[in-house]
Design a binder for these strands. Structure first.
Lengths: 181, 181
DNA sequence: TAATCGTGGATATTAAATGTCTACGAAGGC
DNA sequence: GCCTTCGTAGACATTTAATATCCACGATTA
């Protein structure tokens, strides 16, 4: 059992957008560069978040992605459900009914105890993720990291192209110990 | 994210063994027929349970599998860990450190909040599974199903071969509404 | 000694995750 | 109106894991 990469990508991108000023749209390329992710594949993951109503996509110049609602109203579970789906990782195949001597459907009115236990565990997992919002996560971002991001967003507002700034000029400064999250 | 079939197989087989009398060993073929599972692949899953110290394998004629310890001392989590491993389904790739402006390792002394949230959820999931033992699950098996199994185990003790009994003779009776779990 | 078992490894098959590419439509600036 | 910057949608290719099968081998018992 393993969660796809899209979960980490989606959570980090959503968390980054949660720290963007008001309604600023962040282009996909900027997000991809920020975390060194394949832009084309990231597009797929972000589409899921848009379809789920977590992100809002803006077309055209100065376009990009922004949160569809306040960070305090988006839980980690919301992002998980959008990227991974809401299905229980345990899929009961009812092998009780398949054997040499199959259980009759009447005896299966109540789902088998095993499936019940697995479902309860899944609910506990979901409840834990539902208890945390993007706003709370944003509050835990270290101050220096947050300020670095603020500068990045400012750049974005001024020059619509090459959101990371001139690559050659900032290479030295970037390697000197800047931070993001 | 999805759990492998082996989880359901392992849980059902362990639950069945939990209902077997004292130290009776149940051959793999019997288990496979009981749930209509591919015997060769089931062997792989059972090996994991043996390696984890949950099952004990007995070689030779009258051999098979039995629980390595009392059902009350085997939790659902034990089986899950044996079959699926104990790894967190969320693997943090620390994409914070990979971007155009990487976060310095010093700023990552504390694991990123996102990973922390995911880990906590995983712990909640595990705690939920750890709270249930095979003995408790066995107690929830319907009475008629349990008695059917008792008869099956008795057959096993008497005739070492063809644990399911003569296939042709029991076909009609088997379809008439017998039960197992 | 022969028959019944489980073990371990090699191998094939299938499904899903991962990643890329291209044509297209939407929206703003000139 | 036209062009550029964007996201969208779908068709692919690639990689990895799950699923499954098979066989030679050792252990055990009648």
């Amino acid at each position: 059992m393993r969660l796809s990469q899209g979960v980490e990508w989606g959570l980090h991108c959503a968390l980054l957008l949660a720290q963007a000023p008001d309604g600023l749209a962040v282009p996909r390329r900027t997000l991809a560069e920020h975390y060194d992710l394949p832009e084309a594949y990231l597009a797929k993951q972000l589409q899921s978040l848009v379809a789920a109503g977590i992100l809002h996509a803006v077309s055209g110049p100065r376009g990009g992605y922004r949160l569809a609602r306040p960070p305090a109203e988006i839980t980690v579970l919301d992002v998980l459900d959008a990227v991974e789906g809401t299905a229980d990782p345990f899929v009961c195949q009812e092998i009780r009914q398949r054997g040499v001597i199959p259980v009759t459907p009447e005896q299966c009115r109540r789902p088998c105890a095993i499936a019940a236990v697995m479902t309860r565990a899944h609910q506990a997992w979901r409840a834990s993720l539902r208890a945390v919002t993007l706003a709370e996560l944003a509050g835990r971002v270290p101050r220096p990291v947050r300020e670095q991001q603020r500068a990045r967003f400012a750049q974005l507002r001024q020059s619509p192209r090459r959101a990371g700034g001139p690559r050659s000029g900032t290479a030295a400064a970037g390697a000197a110990g800047s931070a993001h999250d």
